[in-house]
Design a protein around this nucleic acid. Structure first.
Length: 351
DNA sequence: AAGTCGGGGAA
DNA sequence: TTCCCAGACTT
């Protein structure tokens, strides 16, 4: 009987995706960038960002030497901004310690910020045909079904079991086909063994699939235990000076919307009023309420109330500084803004 | 072991 | 609405 990898590769040769942007050429830098962008992000979302990034930073040293605001601006809208910070930091480390290249060594890759076990395996297998397993959402779904693994895959004990199965399969991959095997697993999970309505009727592994045999396909993988999303409220200030420029604030390098530029924001109206009083010359009570923004994060839902005040100025002793500045409409395009804030400003400009 | 970190597509 | 996606990192 043909092995799991062999059957998967036969399927891949005929039905896999062979023309994704990072496959031509399949260089270490391009594979790395794609793997980081694809963390918790679907292929269709990533593709335009990948093209823009490659245009802005054609080589790893280009990325390493780039200004952080430029990197963040090219990432803005893609989410999980720690990925961009880690990517930039890792590029700098590669320039200093690895001659401007990505190291072809598992532990050296793992030591770079933003690269975990699965991403390191994906890079080495795809860029160099080296034998390393991966364990992403696709592989977790395929393995839990194929082997009939019950239990939430995010649970450490289950995840450990899945890593073991993934490694066992890798040992059976035909020589010279590791890159294709890694891609095959992801293509298979993304296009055939999908979360909803998998195409079992077309599946080459159906005969050996435990979930299929036991009628567990729809029940696996075991879903994450659900919790009700907490609600949070906040107030934001859309402040304009006499020239119509907007006051933006650069957020710290960690936390929500890390290193992005956004509106001054506070958890309560009282705190917002206090910030206004110490930083701005103008009348807070004159500010106009803009439509409420409801934005869902992974772990809470934010109700953000924007207030608009025009023709205000910074208090003299505050002044312009690196983290707080007036931004014109044309400058706006060069800065990284959170998606809901950018939408707010675009709507506001339309009026 | 649990929490933090975005935004969008799909059902 | 809810789930979850080519996960990593912190606590």
């Amino acid at each position: 009987m043909s092995s799991f990898p062999s059957q998967l590769l036969t399927w891949f040769d005929q039905h896999g995706r062979h023309d994704l942007p990072w496959q031509h050429p399949r260089s270490p830098y391009r594979v790395w960038l794609s793997e980081i962008m694809l963390q918790q992000t679907q292929v269709a979302t990533v593709i335009p960002y990948f093209h823009r990034f490659m245009e802005a930073f054609p080589t790893l040293p280009d990325l390493a030497r780039a200004d952080n605001d430029t990197v963040m601006a090219n990432w803005a809208g893609l989410g999980y901004y720690a990925r961009a910070r880690n990517l930039h930091a890792a590029a700098k480390q590669c320039l200093e310690r690895h001659d401007g290249d990505l190291p072809r060594d598992f532990d050296a890759l793992l030591a770079l910020p933003g690269i975990g076990r699965s991403t390191a395996g994906a890079i080495l297998s795809q860029a160099w045909n080296d034998s390393f397993p991966i364990l992403d959402g696709n592989v977790k779904r395929v393995l839990t079904r194929y082997h009939g693994i019950v239990g939430f895959p995010g649970q450490p004990a289950i995840e450990k079991q899945l890593w073991g199965l993934a490694a066992a399969h890798v040992a059976q991959v035909p020589a010279g086909r590791m890159a294709d095997y890694t891609q095959a697993q992801m293509d298979f999970g993304a296009t055939l063994c999908t979360r909803a309505k998998p195409a079992c009727i077309l599946c080459p592994l159906q005969g050996n699939c435990v979930a299929h045999a036991e009628g567990l396909v729809d029940a696996l993988p075991t879903p994450k235990p659900s919790k009700t999303l907490p609600e949070r409220e906040a107030t934001a200030l859309l402040l304009e000076d006499a020239q119509g420029r907007i006051l933006l604030l650069k957020r710290p390098p960690t936390g929500i919307w890390a290193s992005l530029w956004t509106l001054p924001q506070a958890d309560t109206d009282a705190l917002m009023r206090e910030w206004f009083a110490t930083h701005i010359q103008g009348d807070y009570d004159n500010a106009e309420e803009l439509p409420l923004i409801v934005h869902a994060f992974s772990h809470y839902r934010l109700h953000l109330q924007p207030l608009n005040a025009r023709k205000v100025a910074l208090r003299a002793r505050v002044g312009d500084n690196a983290d707080l500045r007036w931004v014109s409409r044309t400058e706006l395009a060069n800065l990284g803004l959170p998606a809901p804030i950018r939408k707010l400003l675009e709507r506001h400009r339309a009026h």
